[in-house]
């Protein structure tokens, strides 16, 4: 098992380095990045709104029940959970959702191109697969994942606000206090979103390019993509969160 992990890491690093190289030196394909941005953003937005909306409701319920039990007052639920949402839960859960939605999509697409020899055909025609397939997806994710994170945080916040009103009769004005969000919270959240945006397409793309052998190979590549990119999101969350703690606290 360790050997497989090592191979995945090595391939991911190689694909990442090649992507950066082709960003500087590769051929431009007109419209490719825009098409991928549409793919990444448009196809994940409903999914993100739905899952993060429920997350917002869940946090509010959990925090509210706990607050009721201990201090008997739920007015602090909103102001307490918004910074947490902005700097951690929002970016991380959006990252996990995108790793699931977009990561598997990229791996499935690239993986099926590998097993049907389309990637060989690309290499025959001066279209290196990393330049032609991975680079546009990388740029698209780098832009769209932070954008989706903003959408996700907003939907979690709104859903939380409505839940607070319905479950604990907390007025929206009491729940929605934006002054509690500090610049450091925004910086932590944004840095995580950008990091996830850079890492997810590379891991998923490398998993797809590693696919071997028919439909079983494609399925395996897709599984690898979601596992390793989710894991990367969680590890990066810890590392960047820890750094932010050391810098800001």
């Amino acid at each position: 098992m360790l050997r497989r992990v090592r191979r995945q890491v090595a391939d991911t690093l190689r694909v990442g380095a090649m992507t950066l190289y082709y960003l500087a030196r590769g051929q431009r394909q007109r419209g490719a990045v825009l098409a991928q941005m549409f793919e990444v953003g448009n196809r994940s937005v409903v999914f993100t709104v739905l899952t993060l909306g429920f997350l917002g409701a869940i946090i509010t319920l959990q925090a509210g029940f706990q607050a009721l039990r201990i201090i008997g007052d739920t007015s602090l639920v909103g102001p307490q959970s918004l910074p947490l949402l902005v700097r951690q839960l929002g970016p991380t859960l959006t990252g996990l959702m995108v790793a699931t939605r977009v990561g598997t999509g990229i791996a499935a697409e690239v993986g099926s191109m590998v097993v049907t020899e389309q990637v060989d055909a690309l290499r025959m025609n001066n279209a290196p697969p990393v330049d032609y397939l991975i680079k546009p997806r990388f740029v698209a994710c780098l832009v769209m994942i932070p954008a989706l994170t903003v959408v996700g945080i907003a939907s979690a916040f709104v859903a939380g606000m409505f839940t607070a009103q319905a479950a604990f009769h907390t007025q929206p004005a009491v729940y929605a206090r934006f002054d509690v969000v500090k610049l450091s919270d925004l910086a932590e959240g944004l840095s995580k979103a950008v990091a996830f945006g850079a890492v997810i397409p590379i891991i998923a793309g490398a998993s797809g390019l590693m696919a071997r052998g028919g439909s079983a190979g494609v399925g395996e590549a897709t599984t690898r993509a979601v596992v390793y990119s989710s894991l990367a999101v969680i590890v990066l969350d810890f590392v960047l969160g820890g750094l932010a703690f050391l810098v800001f606290a």
Binding site: F54, L55, V218, T222
Partner: peptide
């Protein structure tokens, strides 16, 4: 075929994720 398997895996994890959040809400 092979592309169908890839698409199904994608749809399956997406549906599971939505399901987990929805079920989590009601269980909470």
């Amino acid at each position: 075929g092979a592309p169908g398997v890839g698409r199904a895996v994608n749809a399956s994890v997406v549906a599971s994720a939505v399901g987990i959040f929805v079920v989590d809400y009601f269980l909470t």
